[in-house]
Design a protein around this nucleic acid. Sequence first.
DNA 1: GTATCTGCAAAACATTTGCAATTCT
DNA 2: AGAATTGCAAATGTTTTGCAGATAC
Lengths: 135, 135
Amino acid sequence: MKKTNNISEFLLENNIKPSYQRLKIFEYLYVHKTHPTVDEIYKALKGEIPTLSKTTVYNTLKLFVDKGVVIIINIEDNETRYDADTSLHGHFKCEKCGNIYDFNVHDNGLTIDLKKFKIKETHIYIKGICEKCIN
Amino acid sequence: MKKTNNISEFLLENNIKPSYQRLKIFEYLYVHKTHPTVDEIYKALKGEIPTLSKTTVYNTLKLFVDKGVVIIINIEDNETRYDADTSLHGHFKCEKCGNIYDFNVHDNGLTIDLKKFKIKETHIYIKGICEKCIN
DNA sequence: GTATCTGCAAAACATTTGCAATTCT
DNA sequence: AGAATTGCAAATGTTTTGCAGATAC
C-alpha cells in the first residue's frame, strides 16, 4: 500500500518503529483531520484491530508527541485532542456542532479566515523558557 | 474592609450572591494573579476557612465562569487554571519554573512583550459559532 | 419557612502505572 | 533468546453528582 509505506517511512525518519498499531493510529490522525480524542481513535480502530487497548493508544500518542510528529490540542478542559499537523495554525471550536476547524496564522500577527464565524472566546498560549530561567 | 466591599459589589453587579466563600475565592483569584488551580485555591484558603470543601471551590469557580467573571486557562492538559482577568491577553508558561506570565495581545495581531523569552510552542484557540451553525 | 449554599461521601472519568504476555528480529 | 511492544487490571487524580445539613433572607 503506497500511503502506508509513506507513513511507515515518515515514522522511521522520526525514530519511531512503525508497528502495526502505530501505523494505524498515525494513519488515522493523518487521514481524519478532526483532532480526535483518545477515545475516538480507540473506538474507530477497535473494529480493524480487535485486540487494541486504550493503553496502547495512550502510549502511542505520548510517543508521537515526544517525537514531535503529533501535537496536543487543549481547546477544552475536559478533553485532550491530537493533531498530526504540527505546523503553526489556529483552532476554532464551534460551541454548537463541536467541530474544530483549522485556520491560518500569519507572520504579521493573527489574520483569521473566520470572518463569517462568530467569535466568543480567544485563548493564546505560548510555552517556552522565561527570562529568569534562560540563564 | 474597602477591598472586600469592592469585590462584594462587583459580584453583586454580576448576579452572584457574595457569600463568604465566594468572596474569599474571588479575592484570592483577584489578588494572586498566578492563575491557580482548584487545588491551589483550596489549600490556600483552607487555613482561613477550615470548613471549606473542594466541592465548594469547584462549584464556585463554575459559577464564576458561567457568570463571566473568571476565565479558564487550559495551557496544560493535566491542569485547569483560573484567571479573574477576563480581558483579552495571552499566557506564557515557562517549562522550567512553571510560572505563567500574562502578555498583551494587540488589535493588529499578536505583538508580544516576550522578546527575551524562548518560545517553543504556540497555541491559538478560538471558540464561537461556525458558519454552518449560525443560521 | 423556604430558597440557596455548602460540604461530605460516592460515583464517574480520564490517564498512568505495574507487570505479564506477545511479538519481532 | 533478548529487547521492544502490547494490553490487561489496578491505581491515581480530577471533576461531578446526590443528598443532607447549615445558612440566609
